[in-house]
Simulated assay, not measured.
Amino acid sequence: MLTFKMVQPEDKEEILSFTSNTWEWGDYIPYVFDEWLDHKNGDFIKAVLDNKIVGISHIGYLSDWEAWLEGLRVHPDYRHIGVGTFLLDVSLETLKNKGIRVARNAIISTNIASQSLVKKRGFELVGEFLSFSRETTDLDTDGIRKADIRDIEFLLNIAREEAKNNSSLAKVGAYWNWEWQELSLIAIERMIKGALVLTDKDIKGFGVIRESMDDIEISSLYGDPEVIRKIIAYGLNLGYKLGISKCMLIIPEGWKHNRILEDFDFKESFEDYTYLVFEKII
């Protein structure tokens, strides 16, 4: 009989034995295991069958009403027996008991099995995002500054205005660290506290930059195109100075600033899939 428990430090070796090579390039679980284990705003769950760990998943609590579901992995020897469904159901019940009203997750467009699973549990597609990349380089970075808490309302107003014309941004326009969230003061504050949020002196636009596993990631780009260009240049230059060769840009489907991608010679990272964000009202 399947049961669930919280992951413990001593589970690391067993879990990484089946979560380190999920795809051709590997998996991100080894990079986030310790963070999830110590995550004060999350639950790291394991599925157990006959004293063996057969699956894992993680819940990140983004606000008092929103949660992010991620890292659902099933041991290859125990697939097709309902482990994934069990972990999803446990996560949703956990959220319900904690009074969380909205659950979201992201699935690549080619992963039909996972899409089918979440749809069966009432999740609906609310956003589609693409990844573009290029090599970092030494560029001029004048004209921008680091945003702070005093800028939150200005940044939110800029984002909400642009989101009126993009369905993905309207639902889940606040993104960083592979988590999508509804645009709100809490979401903007969370980005400022957890990443490098850049704006200009007149606050006409903004964007988020963070150092990922092996690249510099730029996302949540809003506002004046010239400010966006300066933020992208800053990200490319930052990666170059840090010795990171790759820069990744995450944008919504239908992004109105696509000309900027061409000007900076960004190429689509994955031609065969996009990132689909699903949402369930609990």
Rank of each mutant, 00 (worst) to 15 (best):
N258F: 13
K5W: 05
G122Y: 03
F278A: 04
I282W: 01
I149M: 12
I218A: 02
A106P: 06
T137K: 03
L37M: 00
I107H: 01
L155W: 04
Y28I: 06
K230A: 10
A163F: 09
L72S: 13
L196E: 13
I81T: 08
K230R: 11
M1T: 14
K98Q: 09
L92H: 04
R73L: 04
F86H: 06
I158G: 09
V83M: 00
K119D: 08
K256E: 15
E66C: 03
A47S: 10
L87I: 09
K5E: 15
I107A: 00
G127C: 07
D64N: 15
D34F: 00
R101D: 15
S167P: 12
A106I: 12
E153D: 15
G99E: 03
D215T: 13
L87F: 01
E13K: 10
K98I: 06
N157Y: 13
L238R: 06
V7M: 02
F278M: 05
K267H: 10
T136Y: 00
I112W: 04
K40L: 07
I228Q: 07
I81H: 01
Q181N: 14
L117P: 07
Y78N: 09
L130M: 09
L117M: 03
E161S: 15
D215F: 08
Y61A: 01
L221R: 09
L62M: 13
I45L: 00
W25Q: 08
Y78A: 03
K12V: 10
